[in-house]
Design a binder for these strands. Sequence first.
DNA 1: TATAAATCCTACAAGAATAGTAGATAATTA
DNA 2: TAATTATCTACTATTCTTGTAGGATTTATA
Lengths: 152, 152
Amino acid sequence: MKLSKKSDYALRAMIYLSMQYKKGAIQIKEISAKEKIPQKFLENILLVLRKVGILNSKIGLNGGYELARSPDLITLGEVIRALDGAIAPVDCVSKISYKPCSEEVTCVIRGVMLDIRNAITDVLDRMTFADMCSRVKDSMEKKETGVLTYTI
Amino acid sequence: MKLSKKSDYALRAMIYLSMQYKKGAIQIKEISAKEKIPQKFLENILLVLRKVGILNSKIGLNGGYELARSPDLITLGEVIRALDGAIAPVDCVSKISYKPCSEEVTCVIRGVMLDIRNAITDVLDRMTFADMCSRVKDSMEKKETGVLTYTI
DNA sequence: TATAAATCCTACAAGAATAGTAGATAATTA
DNA sequence: TAATTATCTACTATTCTTGTAGGATTTATA
């Protein structure tokens, strides 16, 4: 039940890009430095996100990445699925990599796993990067009043 | 976010043993055959469950395993933690293998992961093997009326 | 048009985790 | 005593994770 490093990095990069939405292309190098993510690894991650249509890219000098849609139209679930595949704990309750188990109809474990899948996707498929930005801004405000420090 | 084969097998074996609670020791060989779990692999799994106090064992002729407590006092969460470790998607929101991340207090990803952890443990730490037995029996009844077949 | 800067793409590699196997030992019962 | 059953440690094969390497391609700008 673990979030992969890949997805973790992807979420951080996505939040970073969401915070800069509509401010032009941001380069891998910048994200990598600011978020302390190995640059070459991040390259692969952003490439995937572009291929599934979450990011747009611009090649060449002053190129970089930007969100393909508004942050409120991209959910954490979409990003995690793009990188790690299914969110469901077992394939027989997965939407995107569904495989029937031997006795699916009556398997009592399946029932529980379905509950868990729904609980997880309830969070991940509702939460957008716009929401994440709000949270970051909340943290930043608290920082100004001396309460907290901000981190993605 | 995957349930390991180990935990899957463990749950099946535990349900099997719960269905036979108070009927004496059940042998690995029987569980392995009925639930189609590699015997040697199951051996290791049941050994772990005994060491954490979920099962009792009896060595020798007519030996075997049985629940150490009533099925309504054992949760799925306890079993999964025994075999796979933490249920939390990241260590900084885990109870049993907690490790702080760099900027824990304000990390906005941590907030989401905490929600997910709570959603998962809400299901797994409430659901007991007595509940699972009820579900199995429900399935069996439906089978008798021709509606369903029963499987763990 | 040359050059530098950026993404694109494929392949590779080390290490860890997963899934399962092997075989000898110890305890118990009949 | 013989058969049976769990105990224990270690090993292995495969897959997944977490990266790294290096060249190809595209673009802006001087």
